[in-house]
Design a protein around this nucleic acid. Structure first.
Lengths: 192, 192
DNA sequence: TAATTGACCGTTTTTCTCATTTGGTCATTT
DNA sequence: AAATGACCAAATGAGAAAAACGGTCAATTA
């Protein structure tokens, strides 16, 4: 059984970035946690930023997988989309790395942390866009710009899950599903 | 013709807060611009915060008036709400004080600036809520929680006017009206 | 005598300096 | 050939000194 240095470095980095954020994580620390010399890190990763990207990419992949697995081909557009959006955003809300990076963006605005969270958002939007395109093809969703629709849908979920509870009691999963269905799917206008 | 010191102070303060933000505005500076002694300011306003509140309250009143004047009793819910929301948010976008305060919140997170913008948001939401209640009474809008509906409507407008253009070409007034009508009023679901 | 003022006060913020820490390298060791 | 940690220039942070701040009030003005 050989000692997999690359894997050890990645595990140490994930641990450290999750606990201290991007800026406060030092390469010396990662080396110590990983039980390797500092120079060894640089034989596997070009620099701190690339090591960080590797970790973030992994998180994004994980979330994409989660979203994919929430889709049930038998089920309808609305149920599928609600299940995957909700589970991804709940996962993100509880993911230590995502939490720490959000905090870092808020408190010191580290560029690398901003970029990482933007990457997560971009991945979610790309996933949503594909699902909306499928919805249009299946005639479950009206003709519309999938990109804009994904964008507004995402904003609505963020508003329902994260923003509303800043000034009101937080909503349950069922309430969010109902509101999503009411506002986004059916609209508020009384039909004449 | 007497010299209205209170008015002069208010004008100087508005100028200064708009140019430099809350934190970077000094009472010495306001006094100098207003052509009064620093002590005079404190005969009219308890402290810097209260002077600032006076200015912000004025801005909110101005926006409320603008929103009220956009409502035409003859017109329907959708047209009225679009006109007033759009004009208020465009006004806010171009209002020097609002711009400076947004920047200050982004860059240094001054509490007084955060509170001021929250006050503006609260006023807009209160206005929307009333209009939505009227819409429900007139049977133009389906039964729903006016508070949550106002909140989501506001978020959607912010997304369309401010957020979308961060990564795409900005939308025209007509496009925003159409998207608002499509997504919020009618919904994306194909009716069976 | 009522209104106005700016010198003044304690506190906060900014600036400057310098010792420490950082990301990254590379000659040496394994 | 792979791994290492002493080493380097650059970035950072602690701490002291100086400047600027909001707010007060005795002196001044009208």
């Amino acid at each position: 059984m050989v000692f997999d240095r690359r894997k050890s470095i990645l595990e140490a980095a994930e641990k450290s970035f999750s606990m201290f954020g991007y800026k406060a994580t030092t390469m010396d620390q990662v080396a110590k946690i990983a039980n390797v010399g500092k120079g060894t890190i640089y034989t596997f990763f070009k620099n701190k930023e690339e090591l960080f990207n590797e970790i973030v990419t992994g998180m994004v992949k994980e979330m994409r997988e989660l979203a994919r697995n929430s889709i049930n081909e038998e089920d309808n557009f609305f149920n599928n989309l609600h299940r995957s959006l909700y589970s991804v955003l709940e996962h993100r809300r509880e993911h230590q790395l995502a939490i720490k990076l959000s905090q870092e963006v808020r408190e010191i605005g580290t560029q690398a942390a901003i970029d990482a969270l933007a990457l997560v958002e971009k991945a979610i939007l790309a996933f949503l866009e594909l699902e909306i395109e499928r919805g249009i093809e299946n005639n479950e969703v009206k003709e519309c710009d999938p990109s804009l629709t994904a964008f507004l849908m995402f904003k609505m979920y963020i508003a329902l899950i994260f923003d509303w509870e800043k000034s009101h009691q937080s909503l349950t999963k069922e309430e969010i599903a109902n509101h999503f269905e009411f506002y986004m799917m059916r609209g508020i206008k009384v039909e004449q």
